[in-house]
């Protein structure tokens, strides 16, 4: 399949990062934010999970960003899109009165009721993102050049992106239809919005990602043109020494070389790294083949992604030109 031109990741208005829990989706969202700010862009990373995970990566002891959000570094802001806060804001705009709306939305019973009500969270959250995308500075330029959304790790994949369309089809008139149309328009605009799936080079995440991409193509109108595979082990041996493990295995297992561990142990280490790399590559190829999409491989960081420096290490491979399927 011929690939369309791949726009630079930072050249979008909205990048929606999605993936199962444990794939490192949040690290990817934070790393994109950091890279964008380093490139001189004004960027917002919007989290949708109930616990803030982006902020601790950028500022280990910092205060939570919360709903209003906070500029963590020059050009890089973080916020958590709390659905109830966004609902208050929206209703206050619609009804013209903040006080009673705040009181009602803070009420436990109302929250319980709304917790059981379908669809509105997705709609209000996406609506808030749209609202931010529309914000302008005094000189008329956009408030943010790029908005990175750390989408919720739900079992429902990207079903949340379909909510505006469902509303549009169900509602004939009124402000909600207008607003949903605007949100849908943003999500389905391939020049502005990109969905970025993040996965691991392992069996289950691979399968889920392939299903996700198929579903996006089938039902959601959002553009998806590359997949991020996180935690990919590097080639174990330098070039020209591709069979180093075999050479080590050929030595007597108990041969010693000074303070080094015996040859058998060295061979085990080498076999392990080779096998892990081969397994990873196998899944990377599967992702690429079965989705027909180019893949961005992020390096395995043995000690996990904990600090800003770790995010910096993810930035270059994220911004690289996507690796085309063989």
């Amino acid at each position: 399949m011929a690939q369309a031109m791949h726009r630079d990741l930072l050249d979008h208005r909205l990048v929606i990062v999605t993936g199962k829990g444990g794939t490192g989706k949040t690290s990817v969202a934070a790393a994109i934010g950091l890279a964008a700010a380093s490139a001189g862009k004004r960027v917002l990373v919007a989290e949708m999970a109930s616990d803030e995970a982006v902020m601790p990566l950028l500022e280990p002891d910092g205060a939570p960003a919360g709903y209003p959000g906070r500029e963590v570094l020059p050009g890089l802001s973080v916020m958590r899109v709390d659905p109830f806060a966004a609902l208050s804001e929206y209703l206050a705009l619609q009804l013209g009165g903040r006080l009673i709306v705040d009181r009602v939305v803070a009420n436990r019973g109302f929250r319980q009721l709304m917790n059981g009500a379908p669809g509105w969270r997705e709609l209000i959250t996406l609506g808030k993102v749209w609202h931010i995308e529309q914000m302008k500075k005094a000189d008329g330029s956009p408030r943010y050049d790029l908005i990175v959304v750390d989408a919720p790790a739900t079992g429902h994949g990207v079903a949340f992106l379909n909510v505006p369309r469902v509303v549009v089809s169900a509602v004939r008139t009124g402000p909600l239809r207008r607003h949903s149309l605007a949100v849908e328009d943003l999500i389905e605009d391939p020049d502005r919005t990109l969905l970025l799936p993040v996965t691991l080079a392992e069996e289950l995440p691979t399968r889920e990602t392939v299903e996700l991409v198929a579903r996006v193509r089938e039902e959601a109108g959002v553009r998806v043109d590359r997949v991020v595979v996180n935690g990919v082990a590097p080639p174990p041996f330098p070039s020209g020494l591709e069979d180093l493990d075999v050479a080590l295995r050929a030595l007597p297992a108990d041969a010693r070389f000074g303070a080094l561990p015996p040859a058998g142990v060295l061979a085990d280490c080498a076999s392990f790294l080779r096998a892990r790399h081969a397994l990873n590559r196998g899944y990377v190829e599967q992702v690429s083949e079965l989705t027909g999409l180019p893949v961005l491989c992020l390096p395995l960081l043995v000690d996990g992604v904990e600090r800003r420096e770790d995010l910096v290490r993810l930035a270059d491979p994220l911004l690289a030109a996507p690796e085309l399927p063989a």
Partner: peptide, 22 residues
């Protein structure tokens, strides 16, 4: 011991790196 690889010194260094990685 790794002479058969054709690049013994690099092979030895790579082996040390492999052991350290693991």
């Amino acid at each position: 011991a790794l002479a058969s690889t054709g690049a013994p010194q690099r092979a030895a260094e790579a082996t040390l790196a492999v052991a350290s990685d693991y």
